[in-house]
Simulated scan of single mutants.
Amino acid sequence: MGNKPILYFLCTGNSCRSQMAEGLGKEILGDEWEVHSAGIEAHGLNPKAIEMMNEIGIDISNQESSIIDRDVLNHATFVVTLCGDALDNCPAIPPSVKHEHWGLVDPAKAEGTEEEVDQVFRDVRDDIKERIEELKTSSK
């Protein structure tokens, strides 16, 4: 762990929302933060999440789907839970760690035509992007 603040995105399976958040976090926050993501379980990267991030020029295909690392959690500066499952089932977040809950719909559960499903992924991606941009502005 370096000297930079650590931002940790937590979700159920670390396949969609938290992966997009990690990719956006690294892109937007650059060298200012150390950005990680994890899940209660590891479901692997969702190909649609990779595709929707590629649309905005961010490649997350080399990111790994991993389960929560207590060491990272305990050293985190800021933890963001992205779904109710992570909020309810996450190991105890230390009181010294700032925590925010961004309850986002699970794009992997989206139904409809491919275009409709893609739009749910885009909406979630864009929502995460706006929130990280706000975080960058407020942390200066």
Rank of each mutant, 00 (worst) to 15 (best):
L7Q: 01
Y8M: 10
Y8E: 06
Y8P: 05
F9Y: 08
L10R: 04
C11G: 02
T12K: 05
N14E: 02
N14T: 03
N14K: 12
Q19W: 11
Q19S: 12
A21M: 12
G23C: 01
K26P: 01
E27K: 15
L29A: 06
G30C: 02
G30E: 02
G30L: 01
E32N: 08
E32M: 04
E32C: 09
E34L: 11
E34P: 08
V35E: 08
V35M: 11
V35F: 04
H36V: 01
A38L: 00
G39E: 01
I40P: 12
P47T: 00
A49P: 00
I50E: 04
E51L: 09
E51F: 09
N54Y: 06
N54K: 15
E55C: 06
I56T: 05
G57V: 11
D59Q: 08
D59R: 07
N62F: 03
Q63G: 02
Q63I: 04
S66N: 13
I67G: 11
I67Q: 14
D69H: 05
D69R: 03
D69V: 03
R70Y: 15
R70E: 15
V72C: 13
H75E: 14
A76E: 12
V79Q: 06
T81M: 02
T81C: 07
T81F: 09
T81Q: 07
C83G: 04
G84Q: 03
G84R: 00
D85L: 14
C90N: 08
A92I: 15
A92M: 13
S96T: 15
V97P: 00
H99T: 09
H99R: 07
H101P: 10
V105L: 13
V105A: 14
P107L: 11
A110P: 02
E111K: 14
E111W: 02
G112Y: 11
G112Q: 08
E115M: 10
V117L: 13
V117P: 04
D118F: 04
F121I: 06
V124L: 10
D126G: 10
D126W: 03
D127A: 07
I128K: 10
E130V: 11
I132W: 02
E133W: 10
E134K: 14
E134S: 15
